[in-house]
């Protein structure tokens, strides 16, 4: 699975969690760019991403996310090393 495929799958998760079918995220997208991306939705989104990719983020990994690209990179490293 490459970075673009991961991004597309995350986009589907984001649309469901943030209840916004028109959402179109990029690698540079951050919480500041998505109105619905608040702390509680953030927790749900992380859980859904972990379930979907069958991975578990470390606390320090989630706290290091500055944008979607950071998440994609960590997911990529986890799914390719599994």
């Amino acid at each position: 699975m490459n970075h673009i495929e991961i991004l597309n799958q995350i986009n589907t998760i984001f649309r469901r969690v943030f209840e916004n079918d028109s959402l179109h995220i990029q690698m540079e997208t951050s919480a500041d760019d998505v109105d619905e991306w608040d702390s509680l939705n953030h927790t749900v989104m992380i859980v859904e991403v972990e379930k979907h990719f069958n991975i578990k983020f470390k606390l320090k990994e989630v706290l290091s996310f500055q944008n979607v690209g950071d998440m994609v990179n960590i997911i990529h490293s986890k799914v390719t090393s599994a």
């Binding site: 608040d38 702390s39 953030h42 992380i46 859980v47 606390l59 989630v62």
Partner: peptide, 11 residues
């Protein structure tokens, strides 16, 4: 701060 706290709650 709200995002960090959200992450802590999730964890």
């Amino acid at each position: 701060s709200s995002m960090i706290r959200g992450t802590l709650m999730q964890h």
